[in-house]
Design a protein around this nucleic acid. Structure first.
Length: 506
RNA sequence: GACCGCUUAGCUCAGCUGGUAGAGCAACUGACUUUUAAUCAGUAGGUCGAGAGUUCAAAUCUCUCAGCGGUCACCA
């Protein structure tokens, strides 16, 4: 076709096809051309012999300019093409390797396939290992194969994608382009795997409890509500698995149980909150909260060590040192340290409220004593808790499922582990006196009546379970997402979630 | 939910106090051939997030809306 006609034809194409459609059409044409040449653009199978990383490791010592007879097959996505297809950068799950396509080693038929290849295609290459005179480990291809024709252009090779929205909405593109995104999510995967192994090794049984809850309980939070049609009943997506896990301990199913799973809270979205998030929650018969502190500390240290090879890790501007034993301080004492006020001296909420006012901390005037202490703690103490610390002995008012403190009736045996100002663990000696639990639920239900949307509901069946008898039990939970944020130096929870919640695009 | 900011080619970004859109990469045509963000010459690619307004004239100014981001609120 003469040039003018060609330009004209291209121009006509453009009227129906915009920029991206035009790029796509070029690739569709190559796909069709593959078929016309008798090649399947989407074949069923390929058997690579090595990952790129394994080759880099195995051949790390061969000098520049070495040719070997070692035959390998690699497969992956073309990330870059140089010299008109002579050099392909092929990326697999482990890394990248250059595939060298030269007429010296490839038949004319094989060479002809290169014209169907684009950046982004999944291809296979078979050939011999060599290191180029310039030092690049390569596969000297004898054969190449299209394994999956890509129809859409990848982002620019040098800058990659920086559009944050695209990174989360089209995570697959982010993963193709950004090694760090893969690495972060792989740490998450490893953390969950390590936790599971740790728990299994101690003989704990992993269980799955309902996500659809008829009664909201186990945590103070706003729930999602959904509807079962056949039962014509609303259910809450669970905000915590706690009450079911304790029922299993009552049943003697096992003395140690745990569940790794998703929780759902219908609250704001922020760099530290996703509506669905993952926790590990464990319950251990015959243990108290001191045992839980040891357990949480040991597990977290193990994870930090496995991931980083050190107990000191960087996060933002800080170095966080997980070396134990972590400090254990009571919430009230910490508040006293910062405010110079001992809130235990106040017998009533009114006095505590005045003290909070004097500190310039605004608190809902409806608050009870414990809520005021908690508010002051959050305001004055939390922002300072960078290094790991177990904050212990919370007010009873804010802990309806924890057992009363053995030395102080206004407190409970509870701790929250803080790192980098975040609560990463929450645990207690579990309340197992059914009469007391019933009173606590009644208090929650009353608060709920009074408008506290996050207060828990009376769960009669749970109280019944306690009436059959829950052994002395320690329970704990760790938020996996935030832990992974710490371990990967991520500043946004979305980095550690494969598909974070976004508003659907219209 | 409130406030602030961002949105221009497939991607990364320019575009000044208003004067009808530019570059690099990717793509296409060709040259070259052991490259490393390969190079060289050329071609094509845009409803400037959407809608309304002001103006002779709007990517640019105003308003509304949408998505995203940041801070705050709620929370883990």
């Amino acid at each position: 076709m003469p040039k003018q006609e060609q330009a004209q034809a291209q121009k006509e194409d453009k009227q129906t096809a915009g920029g991206q459609a035009e790029l796509r059409k070029v690739r569709e044409d190559k796909r069709d051309a593959l078929r016309e040449a008798g090649l399947d653009p989407y074949p069923y199978k390929y058997e690579p012999s090595h990952y790129a990383a394994a080759l880099h490791e195995a051949y790390k010592d061969i000098p520049d300019g070495t040719e070997t007879e070692d035959s390998v097959r690699v497969a992956g996505r073309i990330m870059a093409v140089r010299n008109n297809g002579m050099f392909l950068d092929v990326q697999d799950a482990s890394g990248k390797i250059q595939v060298f396509c030269h007429k010296g080693s490839m038949s004319a038929d094989e060479l002809a396939k290169l014209k169907f290849f684009d950046i982004g295609d999944i291809v296979g290459g078979e050939g011999t290992m060599r290191r180029t005179p310039r030092g690049e480990l390569s596969v000297r291809a004898i054969k190449v194969e299209m394994l999956s024709k890509s129809l859409l252009p990848l982002p620019e090779k040098f800058h990659g994608i920086s559009d944050i929205e695209m990174r989360y909405r089209q995570r697959y593109v982010d993963l193709i382009m950004n090694r760090e995104s893969c690495d972060t999510l792989r740490v998450r995967s490893k953390v969950i795997s390590l936790i599971r192994r740790h728990m299994d090794d101690m003989g704990a049984l992993e269980v799955e409890t309902p996500i659809l809850h008829p009664i909201m309980g186990g945590a103070s939070a706003k729930p999602f509500v959904t509807h079962h049609n056949a039962l014509d009943t609303d259910f809450f997506l669970r905000v915590a698995p706690e009450l079911y896990l304790k029922r299993l301990i009552v049943g003697g199913f096992a003395d140690d149980v745990y569940e790794i799973g998703r929780l759902f809270r219908n609250e704001g979205i922020s760099p530290k909150h996703n509506p669905e998030f993952t926790t590990i929650e464990g319950y251990h018969a015959y243990k108290d909260y001191f045992d839980m502190m040891d357990m949480v500390e040991g597990l977290v240290q193990k994870l930090v060590m496995e991931i980083h090879g050190s107990l000191k890790i960087p996060y933002g501007d800080y170095e966080i040192d997980f070396t134990g034993p972590w400090q254990r301080k009571s919430m009230v004492d910490l508040v006293t340290e910062e405010s110079k006020i001992d809130f235990l001296q106040f017998e009533t909420a009114e006095e505590a409220l005045r003290a909070a006012d004097d500190l310039g901390i605004s608190v809902d005037p409806q608050s009870n004593w414990g809520q005021i202490v908690e508010a002051v703690f959050e305001e004055l103490v939390e922002p300072k808790l960078i290094q790991p610390m177990h904050v212990i002995d919370h007010p009873l008012d804010i802990s309806p499922l924890a057992k009363g403190h053995r030395d102080n009736p206004r407190l409970v045996e509870r701790f929250e582990t803080f790192v980098n100002t975040w609560e990463i663990a929450n645990a207690f000696s579990e309340l197992n006196d059914p009469a007391v639990q019933r009173e606590r639920f009644a208090g929650q239900a009353a608060a709920r009546e009074a408008g506290d949307e996050e207060a828990q509901m009376m769960d009669e069946d749970f109280v019944t379970a306690l009436e059959y008898g829950l052994p002395p039990t320690g329970g704990w939970a760790i938020g996996i997402d935030r832990l992974v944020m710490l371990l990967t130096n991520s500043s946004n929870i979305r980095e550690v979630i494969c598909f974070p919640t976004l508003k659907p695009k219209k």
